[in-house]
Design a protein around this nucleic acid. Structure first.
Lengths: 148, 148
DNA sequence: TTGTCTGCAAATCATTTGCAATATT
DNA sequence: AATATTGCAAATGATTTGCAGACAA
C-alpha cells in the first residue's frame, strides 16, 4: 500500500517523504474533497511540528503533477481531491457533503469542432465540474420529510 | 443604449446608479474578461472618487443576478465577462489575450443520465470553460515565425 | 422620506515567500 | 556530499466589512 504512493512520487520526481505519503493517504482515504487547512489538521496528528506551508507546497506539487485534482468552489479557496482513476475524466461534487464521484465523460470532443471551425481557435485545456446533491444526501434530505 | 443597462438593473431590482451603468458599459465594450482592479482603473477616469469596494460589490451583485459571468483563472483572482447572449451557453477563453467567445453548446444534457443513473445524484449546477488560443493570437504567434 | 449605495479606512484570511535547518538520495 | 524539503515567522494581496454620509425611488 505504501508502495502505491511511493511510486506516484517517484514518477513525479519528487522525493519520497513521510509527509507526502501521508497527504496522499489522507486524500485517498475518503472520497471527499479537502482544504489545505483540513489536511493540515489531520497531518498534525502524526507530525506534531508540520507547518501549513508544507501542506500547501505539496498539494500544489501534486496537483501540478496531475495526481490530485483541484475542486472549484465559490469559497474562493482551494480544495483538493485524489482519485485512482487514471483516465481523463471529470467530477460530480456534492455541495452538501463534499463527496466527489468520477464522471467518465468528457465534453471536449463535442466542442473541438466548434472551436476550430467557428472560433478558429485552439483548445489548450478545459474545466468541467458538475455540482449537485449526492444520493446519500438526497436520502437524508427526503428522510427529513419534506414537501416544503 | 443607456436604456439597455437600465433595464438590466431594473430587472435585478438594483437601483440605477451611474456607476453600475458604467460597469456594465465597460464590460460590454470589449470581449475581454477583466479583473475588479482593471475595471476600477477604467472607472476612475469618470468617477474620481470611486472606491474599489464599490466595484467589488457591484460586480458581485451583477454576477449573482446572472448578468455578468465569472471567468475561472489560475490566478486565484476573480475576473468578469459580460455578453449579450441570453441563452444558456459557455465560454472559450483565450489565455493569451483574455478574449472570450461564446460557445453555444452545453454538456449538461450528456451527463444528466449518467448522474441520475450511476451516481444517483441530482445536478444543481455545472461549470464548463474552454481555455485556449484565439484566432487572433494564433496568427500573431505564427507570424512571429516558429517551427521551434 | 426610506432604503439603498458609496467612500473610506481598516480588517480578514487564504496563500506565498525567505531563509536557515533538516532530511532524502 | 549535493539537492530537495521543511518549519517558522513574516509578508502578500485579493476581497470584505463597518459605518457615516450621499443618492435613487
Amino acid at each position: 500500500m505504501k508502495n502505491k504512493y511511493s511510486d506516484i512520487l517517484k514518477k513525479l520526481k519528487l522525493k519520497i517523504t513521510p509527509k507526502r505519503i501521508e497527504i496522499l493517504s489522507i486524500l485517498d482515504r475518503e472520497n471527499y474533497f479537502k482544504s489545505p487547512e483540513e489536511i493540515w489538521q489531520l497531518m498534525k496528528k502524526r507530525f506534531k511540528k508540520i507547518g501549513l506551508p508544507t501542506v500547501y507546497r505539496n498539494l500544489e506539487d501534486l496537483a501540478e503533477g496531475g495526481v490530485i485534482f483541484r475542486i472549484i468552489h465559490p469559497d474562493r479557496q482551494l480544495y483538493y481531491y485524489f482519485c485512482n482513476n487514471k483516465d481523463h475524466h471529470h467530477h460530480f461534487v456534492c455541495i452538501s457533503c463534499k463527496r466527489v464521484s468520477d464522471v467518465d465523460y468528457c465534453p471536449e470532443k463535442e466542442v473541438i469542432n466548434y472551436v476550430s471551425k467557428r472560433i478558429k481557435g485552439k483548445i489548450i485545456s478545459h474545466i468541467f465540474q458538475i455540482n449537485g446533491i449526492c444520493n446519500v444526501c438526497m436520502n437524508i434530505e427526503s428522510s427529513l420529510g419534506g414537501t416544503k
